[in-house]
């Protein structure tokens, strides 16, 4: 078991949303998390990425907590990709290159790998030089995914990664992710509102319902 979240409670705005969350993942696992909006799916992903603190519970990656890893090192292995892609105000290439400037970066930027990743996700290599913010929303979302993949994560926490994509590109992204999971490159926990996605990914479905705090289900 490389990733083990035990008895996690999640709160937002001072209100407990989820309680007793148990989540175990190994490379090659693919889970789809679904539930009403406002139920705490995004917050749960943020907690697992240590961007927000859990109210209670423990998270371990390869037997060590995020703090024992050093949170920045932990986040390189357990990578969260937000629903809305946040592109820095620079070229696509520099957006991808940026993550190798951090102290936690193990190695240097591999441009060929970046280009091939973009291609697999349906973004033309010519886009590398383009200002990232001038891309369409769907392209930005895929660049954002590629940026996370550049880190060679072990756990990917994806918040609606195909929400802004058209059906064709959704297929490309899904195909790539399923292929990598089959190779046991990483494990994925994906939040999805697309009812067919779990089936297409061959993913195990996790319903948030069992963790919902009774008064927290219907919130905005």
């Amino acid at each position: 078991m490389i990733f083990d979240a035990k008895n996690i409670s999640v709160a937002a705005g001072g209100r407990t949303l989820l309680e007793g969350v148990e989540l175990r993942m190994d490379k090659g696992d693919l889970f789809v998390l679904s539930g009403q909006s406002g139920a705490g799916k995004t917050t749960l992903l943020r907690v697992l990425a240590w961007l927000d603190l859990p109210q209670a519970g423990e998270i371990e990656f390869e037997g060590k907590s995020p703090l024992e890893w050093g949170v920045n090192n932990y986040r390189r292995k357990v990578v969260y990709v937000s629903q809305r892609a946040a592109m820095m105000d620079e070229s696509v290439e520099n957006n991808l290159r940026r993550v190798f400037r951090y102290a936690s970066a193990g190695k240097g930027f591999d441009r060929d790998r970046a280009v091939s990743l973009l291609e697999k996700l349906g973004v033309e290599p010519e886009r590398m030089g383009q200002d990232a913010r001038s891309l369409s929303e769907g392209q930005q979302q895929r660049v954002s995914l590629a940026r996370a993949l550049m880190l060679e994560p072990e756990i990917l926490l994806l918040d609606e990664p195909t929400g802004s994509l058209d059906p064709d590109t959704v297929g490309m992204v899904e195909e790539y992710l399923v292929g990598e999971v089959a190779k046991r490159s990483f494990a994925i926990l994906v939040v999805s509102h697309d009812p067919g996605q779990a089936g297409r990914l061959g993913a195990k479905k996790i319903e948030l319902a069992s963790w919902l705090v009774s008064n927290g289900g219907g919130g905005a």
Binding site: N72, R76, Y80, M88, V99, R101, Y102
Partner: peptide, 16 residues
């Protein structure tokens, strides 16, 4: 905020 937290999520330290 989204940009700052994206950098954090990708392994930046708070100062980075």
């Amino acid at each position: 905020r989204a940009e700052v937290e994206t950098e954090l999520a990708l392994g930046a330290t708070a100062w980075e």
